[in-house]
Design a protein around this nucleic acid. Structure first.
Lengths: 360, 360
DNA sequence: CTGAAAGCGCTTACAG
DNA sequence: CTGAAAGCGCTTACAG
């Protein structure tokens, strides 16, 4: 790799060092303003400062004093130290979302929904686990040690929860079959899979190939098995090999290239991928192999990612409501945190979006 | 929307409530184990517990005592309260990456690189700002109030930094023209743009259309202007309208549909999009309009996202090394945090990847 | 309406 | 090698 000129500028802390120019100077950082300084500046106690910054002045602090404190806060640029605040209160105002595949556009919707539900009171931070891996209990435990207000954990399995054994606000996302262990907000992927099965049967397909995902999450088991059952009910069958790949287009493409001879020999006329991301890979693979879609092979996926409307042909997909998922999960968590009875959410409905990839 | 049966299970805290069955019971949470409990259990002081959990036993704690403490920790399931730890030390071990567009696959690489550089000592959390928006100084200030070990901020502009005025470990990512304000690790997008310009000129294109991004980030200005200059140097020109869209395929598709008459009338034979994500939208728009790519119109983008190898035709793109970017930025931050002199990183090189979308 | 004081759980000089 | 004690910056009963 060709190395080029350095473009990293040294940070100037704006504070004189102990021994300027000697080379072994230590950088002194300007220390953050504390409540003590604000209190001194406004001529009040730190208790009053705390009441003001937390908006608990009603009947406790006179408007005049409050105004004086506000002024001091603005002048000094005081920001509450949330580490200290968390320690004092027992927990903070951060909500952490743990997800295995942040880069998946599906999560943009979940994140937006969660932010909407959390409002400006809580701050949402994301913890990315390794792509294609379920989060490990020890990772989540380390996150709990941060004393967040609560945790949102995407797609863990039952075993994960047994190992976790943590008792704090926690809501699971898209974690079917964890009932009774922790609250979860789920997607009705089974219904979506059945709609897709009926659509394919209706289009005359009987022998369906399947490209699975290898994350070891329940949702993918559910997608596959619901599809299989509903196909069987209508005289169809999952035929040929059932390869699995990580949720990545390139990996899916390779898997599809390998699987194609088997699918073809098994008389497969349609392929379903466990996710749209993988379906894109299958589409590419078939274009490379000269197998026309939908002419020789129909194709469908799950998620209905934005890009699925843009492929050539457009991709038939089971739409999973990511925004609503984030909204419901964070809303539930918030109720838990605030000690309210959680509003009864639904199992969020999935519905099939039909496009050119399964046209006759 | 059809509502279905509720599938949210109530969380059972496993702890008896104050007034069981009365209905106004408050949920008592099992309180986390503290160092005091561990100390008591092991028959030592909390100071010793602290030394053991922080691995500072060498010459300070006898192996026997250390072993006893370890055993107590394991037995009680003790995890250090990081809020308290942060308060005591002055800052914690969390590194926060602030990025406008977490869902962009480009960030998967940045995140993986940053995690690699941070190792297991620091914990990386992500803060998602609204899509298509530069992070606001107040958001970043709120993040600093969490007392993280440091912050990595993607693509802010100079004005942002003037407003920020925060003096703590901070490294900017892909933030050209912020020299002297804060350290930054940059991508040589200008060089990439010039390579792309020369490639297009060499392929015989002289009148080039451009689809810009509307995030207000320097990197996009640089991409466009470097392309413009290098084209001019070779007798080419940015011609026709220069629409802008958010970094989203669907939005880009709409923008391209609108721009096409203008481009066509201006004699444009190639279009460059500010990002691959947008280029996918242009590709879709042109397929919809019946404009063959590359036959009638060549197309290229920036980022070389994984999916760019899978489109039909494959997308010519300026590869930006996302993994190295995360690695270098986090490495620099880590040096800053630990008071070491940052290793001199490079401005990370970009290089053109030529695919079918600009074939003759 | 306001303040002095205790306490959150940890870390780190300091004394022994 | 080990412990008692102070302190990080905040919040919250409690006393006035």
């Amino acid at each position: 790799m060709r190395r080029q000129a350095l473009n990293v500028t040294r940070y100037d802390p704006g504070v004189s060092s102990a021994a300027p120019g000697t080379g072994d100077e230590t950088i002194e950082r300007r220390r953050p303003v504390t409540a003590v300084q604000v209190a001194r500046h406004a001529g009040v106690s730190t208790a009053t400062v705390s009441l003001v910054v937390n908006g608990k002045t009603a009947g406790r602090v006179s408007p005049q004093i409050a105004a004086r404190v506000e002024a001091a806060i603005a002048e000094l640029g005081y920001v509450v130290d949330r580490a200290a605040s968390s320690l004092s209160r027992g927990s903070g105002d951060v909500v952490i979302l743990v997800a295995p595949d942040i880069a998946n556009p599906f999560f943009a919707g979940v994140i937006a929904g969660a932010q909407e539900a959390l409002g400006s009171i809580y701050q949402l931070l994301l913890s990315a686990t390794d792509v294609g891996c379920v989060p490990r209990p020890e990772d989540v435990r380390a996150l709990f040690a941060l004393r967040p207000a609560g945790l949102l954990v995407d797609a863990p399995n039952v075993r994960f929860l047994r190992d976790l054994d943590v008792h704090a606000p926690l809501v699971l996302i898209d974690a079917p079959s964890t009932e009774g262990v922790a609250p979860s907000v789920d997607l009705d992927v089974a219904s979506g899979a059945r709609q897709l099965a009926r659509h394919l049967l209706h289009r005359g397909h009987r022998r369906i190939g399947y490209l699975d995902a290898v994350t070891g999450t329940e949702t993918f088991v559910l997608r596959r098995e619901a599809l299989r059952e509903e196909l069987a009910a209508g005289g169809g069958v999952l035929a040929g090999p059932t390869p699995a790949s990580v949720v990545d287009s390139a990996a899916a493409s390779r898997a599809a290239v390998d699987a194609w001879p088997g699918w073809r020999d098994a008389g497969v006329t349609a392929v379903v991928a466990a996710s749209d991301t993988q379906a894109y890979g299958v589409l590419h693979a078939m274009q490379g192999l000269g197998v026309p879609i939908p002419g020789e092979l129909a194709l469908a996926g799950f998620d209905n990612l934005p890009y699925s409307a843009l492929t050539q042909p457009g991709l038939t997909s089971v739409e999973l409501p990511s925004h609503q998922l984030g909204l419901a999960a964070a809303g539930h968590l918030r109720a838990l945190i605030e000690g309210r009875a959680p509003a009864a959410p639904d199992m969020l409905p999935a519905h099939l979006v039909v496009r050119g990839s399964t046209a006759r």
